[in-house]
């Protein structure tokens, strides 16, 4: 009995966004990464185009972090003391991109200066040819101060500046516009807020093909279902033709998963949680896979083993089935 395959007809497409710029394009990257362009829901190859595979970034910091799990710190060992070395190691671990997260303070506890931030970014740019995402420490005034300095010092690189939020986006968007960079628009797990921030950024004049959106996802066990559904809704809206949701989605399962107790803590936890290291990797991997299935274009991870597993899943899912 021949079954008629039900195909969803979408008339929208996710924007194609290219991260990083090579020498020809005004930057210094040896390669660029392009995401987006989908005309169907995740991996539905039989009814639309998925021209660019989801990519994986590894997150590094400008100095050895104080608050990361010892599992990660032991793994990266002394590489974490130098962002350039760390970036190189991340590239070797198979990352498509590097995310450099700036710290609020230096090792002595003094505030990170714009000069130090620029220095760290330049070191990483010199160490690797991969496109780079630079995140501020997450406090509005500090983010603005550091990211403006970084943006100006790296004009033309098409860095991704993170992150713009509804309370603090104007400065970062302005500097991204002036210096040929991209931005991330982040909203707390709400379709409307995401869309509103994209509109506000677009109203400032930044072309939307230089904006990525981060709907904020939560980790497995800590609200991932909201992120999962918000992403599905955003992607459906994009495919239905809503221009303000047609941005590639970036998610940070590494950050989300590694702040959970399940990943961070190895002692005094229930026996039913099992082996710490395996659990932590599984936590990050499952968080990432669930978000991949709901439409993530860029996944930022922290552990190379998770990267390997998620990479394998992407390879498999990007294969179009021959028959159904």
């Amino acid at each position: 009995m021949p079954v008629e395959i039900p195909k969803d007809k979408w008339n929208g497409q996710v924007r194609v966004v290219t991260l990083g710029a090579t020498a020809d394009q005004g930057g210094t990257r040896t390669s660029t990464v392009t995401v987006g362009g989908e005309t169907t829901m995740p991996f539905m190859h039989f009814e639309g185009e998925i021209p660019h595979r989801p990519v994986i970034a590894l997150e590094i910091k400008d100095r050895r972090p104080d608050d990361w799990s010892s599992l990660l710190l032991d793994l990266w060992s002394d590489k974490a003391d130098d962002p350039a070395v760390w970036a190189k190691a991340a590239e070797e671990a198979g990352a498509d991109l590097i995310q450099l997260s700036l710290s609020l303070t230096n090792a002595d506890g003094n505030p990170t200066t714009p000069e130090a931030a620029v220095d760290a970014v330049k070191k990483v740019l010199a160490a690797t040819g991969l496109p780079l995402l630079v995140f501020g420490p997450g406090q509005a005034d500090v983010d603005n101060e550091l990211l403006v300095a970084v943006a100006e010092a790296t004009k033309g690189e098409r860095l991704v500046l993170g992150i713009c939020e509804d309370k603090n986006y104007r400065t970062i968007v302005a500097t991204a516009m002036a210096n040929d960079h991209l931005v991330i628009a982040r909203c707390p797990m709400d379709v409307n807020l995401s869309k509103q921030l994209n509109i506000l950024i677009s109203d400032m004049g930044l072309p939307l093909d230089r904006v990525l959106m981060d709907p904020t996802t939560g980790a497995l066990g800590y609200g991932i279902e909201y992120g999962f559904s918000v992403m599905e809704r955003l992607r459906m809206a994009a495919l239905q033709g809503d221009a303000m949701t047609q941005l590639p989605m970036i998610v940070t399962p590494g950050f989300e998963a590694w702040k959970t107790k399940e990943s961070k803590v190895g002692v005094d936890v229930p026996e039913s949680w099992g082996d710490w290291e395996q659990r932590a990797i599984n936590w990050e991997t499952i968080t990432a896979v669930a978000l991949l299935e709901s439409g993530a274009d860029i996944l930022v991870l922290r552990h190379p083993e998770s990267l390997k597993r998620v990479r394998a899943a992407i390879e498999d899912l990007m294969t179009a089935p021959e028959t159904v």
Partner: peptide, 24 residues
């Protein structure tokens, strides 16, 4: 069947099957 294998899966299942109509 290892706890570190089962625990994340069982939590994922709980999360995905949470009723999204309830307030967050």
């Amino acid at each position: 069947f290892a706890p570190d294998f089962v625990y994340p899966l069982i939590v994922l299942r709980q999360n995905i099957y949470t009723d999204p109509q309830k307030p967050i």
